[in-house]
Design a protein around this nucleic acid. Structure first.
Lengths: 339, 339
DNA sequence: CTCTGGCACTCGATTGCCGCGAGTGCCAAT
DNA sequence: ATTGGCACTCGCGGCAATCGAGTGCCAGAG
């Protein structure tokens, strides 16, 4: 009973603070939320909550604000799921269904997510290694430079220039194309290594050096260190909550422009079916220590194709944001998994 | 003589204000710049300059700051060219030469430009219509859905899904590929319409409907309304100069995320060999009314492949920025024109 | 043992006031 | 035309007084 109400108080504090962005006091809480007790009682609870580290006061004569630990408890135990409204679901659907290609899907999703959550949205392009090979094309640029174009079943098109050891003529290119496609079409890139492992042995001798070269490139560039891509939107929303600009906003913007940082961020939390929340100091990136990240993976079937999420102030509508992230992930997953 | 010194004073004001970001007074001017006259004389000149609308004072007891008109005069007549240092040129070269493909070139350039100018940099991908066709590839997805992949000589790879009226088999696809490549390889996309105009008439009858369909798609999607792309970097630099954030920074960030706005901006000023400067109100975009844009086109030969530039505060080091923009445009043009 | 009303206390934010100083405009003198 | 002198304006920083939201604690009631 007692314990119960303390949590109610914490929940009320979080909700109130998220709305108002101002330290919340006992009087306001007792009035606005039906706690059924007087401000004085609330004060006692708040005192206890502060003792336990869930809330803190910015300065002596102010109300309380949640700590990271407080938000954490709120997210884990206190916040119900907030289903999206019918209108929102329809909006998502109609916003995404007009997409014509992968780029379009990703760009639309990221803008949609930014708009829904009013925060900074991040969407990772489908990982190459999780994608399947739809087609491999080889184009001659010069006799010793070939352009390798890889088309995946998620619609990504990747290209690499390959220098071959000795000039190749068109029939040979044709042959190479046939062999590679036969070996890889329909397979996932992650499975590529074994699929091509003994291709050179089976091919006619004249083809081997070129084949080896191409295979090396495919492996190195597309499987071992695939070039991941990221789309970003809604940075303007940062001006909504950030107050101390020079100190907070700049490093944040800088971090967001670093693809590496974002990839690390998304990479850590792209589980399917689970929306991960990182609150403040829980983030491993310095510049994000004062923000929260809500992210999840998208994809169809077992493994995630990629990740998406939002970055926002710790003072965030977690239930709503989590719902939006989950919903968009579901739609994007369906869209890219199906195509 | 008199006229001459007045302009010297204006130049000094602009230079001083760009450095200090504070209204500059007569005493400082007379001391720091060798005008050879007393503060009182400078005051008279300043008074005249204000009368003519080149400078203004924020409040009565403050120094003067340049108006848009003042910056304009400065850019047009007062600022010499500021050649980049040897080190800077080397930096540009070494920064760009490691690029492996088009995406890489563009991303590196935009970051480089942002770093050099400490402002927001914008680089447009080479326009499709100005690019040449290196290769056209057709991949069968289903018998009635083909994926058309266009590879340009600037390294751009564009893809479109095409629905054909009736199923096509592989030999037909092969034939289509051959015909299209024969007609378009090596040509510029802008010349494509006439190149393909009477292809259907020359082809064998069975091929015509598909050919027509493909040609229609190529024309519509790639020539009439080509999807232009933009890369952006250095938004963090906005926090450097912008002071009133909620009112200035947000709409600015929003505008910068609008590809349409940026494309319009760049599209208007992508002349080769000329660095265009738009100061404050000279910009047609509302959100950019309090910024300046310095941009130019890049490319090799006669027509521009694309445009690039920076967006920054009106209080900007114009000579330096113009030099940087010009230099980067030159290198990017060489890189993409040659490849 | 829990809750409540009362009360004194703290401390950040706001307001009003004052003096400093940077910068100007004007004028008389050179 | 240029200059030194001088009075004037006005933004800014510092300081003190005031206000009030919010707290902690305590004694009393249920």
């Amino acid at each position: 009973m007692l314990e119960e109400r303390r949590l109610d108080v914490l929940r009320a504090i979080v909700e109130e603070f998220v709305l108002s962005n101002e330290p919340v006091g006992s009087k306001l809480l007792a009035e606005r939320h039906q706690l059924g007790v007087s401000p004085a009682t609330v004060r006692n609870d708040m005192s206890a909550l502060e003792e336990e580290g869930y809330i803190t006061q910015p300065h002596t004569s102010a109300g309380r604000i949640p700590t990271d630990k407080g938000y954490r408890l709120f997210v884990d135990r206190l916040s119900g799921v907030k289903p999206l409204s019918r209108a929102e679901r329809r909006a998502i659907q109609s916003f995404l269904e007009g997409a014509i290609d992968l780029d379009d899907v990703v760009r639309r999703s990221v803008r949609l997510l930014a708009q829904l959550t009013r925060q900074v949205a991040v969407v990772q392009y489908p990982s190459l290694s999780c994608s399947g090979v739809r087609h491999i094309e080889i184009v001659t640029i010069t006799p010793v430079r070939l352009l390798l174009v890889l088309i995946t079943d998620t619609g990504r098109v990747e290209q690499r220039v390959v220098e071959v050891p000795e000039p190749v003529d068109d029939p040979t290119v044709s042959e190479l194309r046939t062999v590679l496609n036969a070996a890889l079409n329909g397979r996932r890139l992650a499975d590529a290594p074994e699929a091509v492992a003994n291709l050179p042995d089976e091919a006619r001798p004249g083809l081997r050096p070129h084949l080896n070269m191409l295979i090396t490139v495919v492996m190195e560039a597309l499987v071992d260190k695939p070039e991941e891509r990221i789309a970003l939107a809604g940075t303007a929303n940062l001006t909504r909550s950030a107050i101390d600009f020079a100190d907070t906003l700049r490093p944040l913007l800088e971090a967001l422009e670093e693809q590496v940082v974002l990839l690390k961020l998304i990479g850590e939390v792209r589980d399917l079916d689970t929306v991960t929340v990182r609150i403040g100091h829980e983030n491993n990136v310095d510049a994000l220590r004062s923000t929260s990240v809500v992210a999840t993976g998208y994809g169809r079937g077992a493994s995630a194709l990629g990740g998406l999420g939002v970055v926002g102030p710790r003072r965030m509508d977690y239930p709503g944001t989590m719902a939006a992230v989950q919903a968009v992930a579901k739609y994007v997953g369906d869209l890219l998994g199906a195509d």
